[in-house]
Design a binder for these strands. Structure first.
Lengths: 253, 253
DNA sequence: AGCGCTATGTGGTCAGACCACAGCACGCAA
DNA sequence: TTGCGTGCTGTGGTCTGACCACATAGCGCT
């Protein structure tokens, strides 16, 4: 009797979300075809497409044309892309001030560094103890590899910035928190253009590059040295100093 | 000569993003009509609609039917809704473990509380000084109001949870960081269902409710008392304790 | 001057058509 | 028997055209 006041695409989205919550759809599964979904839900195919488009942008599905097992919309649940798009567009629309992006990154990354150092500390303390198998030494190998790559001579500014972004993201990945990983990736993407512009305002890129690399080494050393407070402080100085130097923020913390 | 390999809706999205970046579109402005946009960009109206649907879900535009100044798609840049949808769906699709949501909330809210307390401290120290007009006493009035409302007798669990969510969000709002506000709102929305389920596992709701209210008062007192470390610790205990009690996380921090 | 009706333009939706694409099965040829 | 090629089939991607409900603005009538 009651009419469904939701728009057609919202019905589709809610239906898919419900299937996800009930476990009827899991990562790796394929969504029903657009035409099937349309007839099943009593909506037009264009409405189904709008809902799937939303899911795609949010990083929940990946669509493939053609036939066979790889065709169709597949649940992937890769939050990074969606978070990046959200933050990038919000910055463009002036919903997210750049200063807030930087401050949030500061909070998250200092916490990540401190937690990594704590994990190293716990792993060292509990190493002979088999009672805590979940306390593992975090995998910092990729972080170190990226730092080595940043020492290569002849890197362009863009290549350096890409490696820099990868290093900071690798810290979050070592931490393992999916939400933080996606958020950090989004924050970085959102201000990527501003970072590039800020580099142009630097007095000396070689000097800055050398300083950044040294600070990176210091951060990694503090983490591996199981020094949470030290790692926290070094990351704070690293990020706030860099953004102050490129004048990305009106006022440092 | 070169073909545009992007899909049609991506062209539309990129065009609008570009207009936003160049300042041709600002919050409050209206997008061109769907038919106009379609002919201008050489795509079909359905592709334009898919792009606008994405913008709507991400919280960038609000659409209205009809005629007049309120009709059409209007730039709003309200990130909260988009962040909530993103995180809620990612949790549903198992891209975001609930434990990671909780841990991220812990990091952000402890940082918010500490920063608020620091702001109070700075405001108190600089009160006679006119040189720092940007250092203002944060507005904690709404936080206190919500705590008063939570003391009202006869609140249902859902009403209490709604006020609880509003209180925690009001802390972020007092801090003023748009990114943190949107993220906290999204985190809360994503686990709302799990919070409700967790309440059912409580031994005694009245006891828990009373404890939560007391802890809220303590947090607010620490902030107003300009005690960053105290506020940080109290928030940490409040959140991790609550989630441990409702068994939302497999292991406390 | 006030009121009501209509013209207009908006997003929302659906139906149908066509395309490019990828896989698969069938059938032909070696 | 084995191999290859070719069409068939179903997928998403796109466009077109049509209709609807709605909200405003302007006109004309009272």
């Amino acid at each position: 009797m009651t009419v469904d006041e939701r728009r057609a695409w919202e019905i589709v989205l809610a239906h898919i979300e419900n299937d996800l919550l009930l476990g009827r759809l899991r990562p790796g599964d394929r969504l029903p075809g657009e035409r099937t979904l349309a007839t099943d839900l009593g909506v037009g195919r264009s409405s189904v497409r709008e809902a799937i488009r939303v899911l795609e942008v949010l990083g929940l599905v990946r669509t493939n044309v053609g036939s066979g097992p790889n065709a169709g919309a597949i649940i992937v649940a890769l939050p990074g892309g969606g978070m990046s798009a959200l933050m990038r567009l919000q910055v463009a629309a002036q919903g997210f001030p750049v200063a807030d992006i930087v401050k949030t990154r500061l909070v998250l990354e200092t916490a990540v560094a401190a937690e990594l150092a704590e994990a190293v500390l716990s792993a060292a303390l509990l190493r002979p103890d088999r009672q805590h198998p979940d306390r593992q030494d975090p995998d910092l190998g990729r972080c170190a590899q990226l730092l080595d790559a940043m020492d290569a001579p002849g890197l362009t500014e863009d290549e350096f910035l890409a490696l820099d972004a990868a290093f900071h993201l690798s810290l979050a990945e070592a931490c393992g928190n999916q939400v933080v990983i996606a958020t950090m990736a989004g924050l970085r993407t959102a201000i990527e253009g501003y970072v590039r512009a800020g580099v142009a305002r630097l007095a000396s890129w070689p000097d800055t590059s050398a300083r950044l690399r040294a600070e990176h080494r210091g951060i990694l050393a503090a983490i591996e040295g199981a020094d949470p407070a030290g790692a926290h402080g070094l990351v704070h100085a690293h990020i706030s100093g860099y953004y102050a130097e490129t004048r990305l923020t009106p006022a440092p913390h």
